[in-house]
Design a binder for these strands. Sequence first.
DNA 1: CGCCCCCTTGAAGTGTGTCAAATCGGGTGG
DNA 2: CCACCCGATTTGACACACTTCAAGGGGGCG
Lengths: 255, 255
Amino acid sequence: MIASARREMSVPAFDRLAALGRLNDIERLAVATSAERTQRSVRLRSELSREGEPQPPPMLVLSGWAARVRMLSDGRRQILGVLLSGDLIGIAAGPRSFAPSTIVALTEATLCNMPRRSELAPDGGLAGAYDLAIALDEHYLLAQVTRLGRLSAYERISDFLLEINERLKLAGLSTANCFRMPLTQELLGDTLGLTSVHVNRTLQALRKDGVLETSNGMIRLHDPARLAEMVDHREPPARPKGVEIARDRMVQRKP
Amino acid sequence: MIASARREMSVPAFDRLAALGRLNDIERLAVATSAERTQRSVRLRSELSREGEPQPPPMLVLSGWAARVRMLSDGRRQILGVLLSGDLIGIAAGPRSFAPSTIVALTEATLCNMPRRSELAPDGGLAGAYDLAIALDEHYLLAQVTRLGRLSAYERISDFLLEINERLKLAGLSTANCFRMPLTQELLGDTLGLTSVHVNRTLQALRKDGVLETSNGMIRLHDPARLAEMVDHREPPARPKGVEIARDRMVQRKP
DNA sequence: CGCCCCCTTGAAGTGTGTCAAATCGGGTGG
DNA sequence: CCACCCGATTTGACACACTTCAAGGGGGCG
């Protein structure tokens, strides 16, 4: 059991969870065994929750991408936000509420159940991780509003990719600012309020400007710090404790 | 004391708070006395919290309008969301976090402090009200993302005004779909990702189409149900308990 | 091989932004 | 009571970022 817990704790989702709060051994074990028991994989495009229906129990994304999405009656689609390895789903609201948005898997993904916030020891590391996860969620939602309201297409894509890079880094899924990007250009457009055609042309501009590089589903950002400066990108103010560690790792790998 | 509590409970903000959860007498009294002690009014444009600085204690808006706002370095401004009478500020995150956004008063406003969520009886009506307030907050933030990402200017303004009408109705501040709208056209533009010039022209179109009517700071929506249908507006799925009551009131007034 | 999905490209259209100036309306002081 | 001022609203002419429509190309996979 301990061995399996250790093994589980090495997957990206657990790395990120551990980065959000100092879990003690009991919590680690509880999460790992719960994950083991309830872990399941879901297919591309399957729905993890549906807007307006009762909120499913809290979940943790172990791998893959998912998205909170809203459809309009005439077929327009808006992706409200993306969910990556280590992201928690449905932890903010109380138990009796309805799911605020439909969530669909953008890739094949694996998930597991998590305890409700009310079931946690109030001062434990896991409760702290939940709190931080909620704060991050809000931060990224506000970032999304700002992107859509006030940034140009060029800035929106830049800012979004900076965010993805920064979030994946926390899970150890982006190294040297290079990461897998499974979103099609159409999905990117639905996320950023653009058409796929314009996403395409803007990506070309970004490549020409030396901002990024793409090759079969991977993206490399050439100079995230400079780009962040250019588009006025903001990192979350509440730094999870693991960020510095992640940076150290980066330094060791590319000195 | 009881008398003062009763008096306090008749203000719009308390109406709305009571609509979110069934407060018992002890809670009513606690809120009322806390409000009495900590109530203060703030001037136009004063900041209630500042992005990145430590989160101030939870607050309740007693009257007036405020906005969560983000400024870009080149002067662009995005209003992330507006706060109305009865809205709670800073109740979602844990105690130790940073304010996720700057909040400024859009009018003169009055506020009071509220207990932290962790200080409440877990199963009390007030805790339920907090949960509902958090859920509503998220709902309206998601609505904002959808507006900015996928709606035209005409639809954005319509959808936003439907939202304001629906929220003010909960506080009893909109009757017969007529309410005070203190936002200038420039502020409206900053909320909806538009310029004030285009807001102006779009409002003219809405007036010409018979959608709404404006007169010295008031707005009247002529047929909210039809308009909601037109722009695919969604009401929050988690209906607070007071909504039906509010509707009954409306019916009694305009049979 | 052929299908399907995704990416790419071109040409033309339009919703919204920009710039600039005029008008309105409420407050304030002479 | 008028003169002035200031912020907000309104209007016009023009520019452009992004969309629309349509077609072609490439790669994986049954």
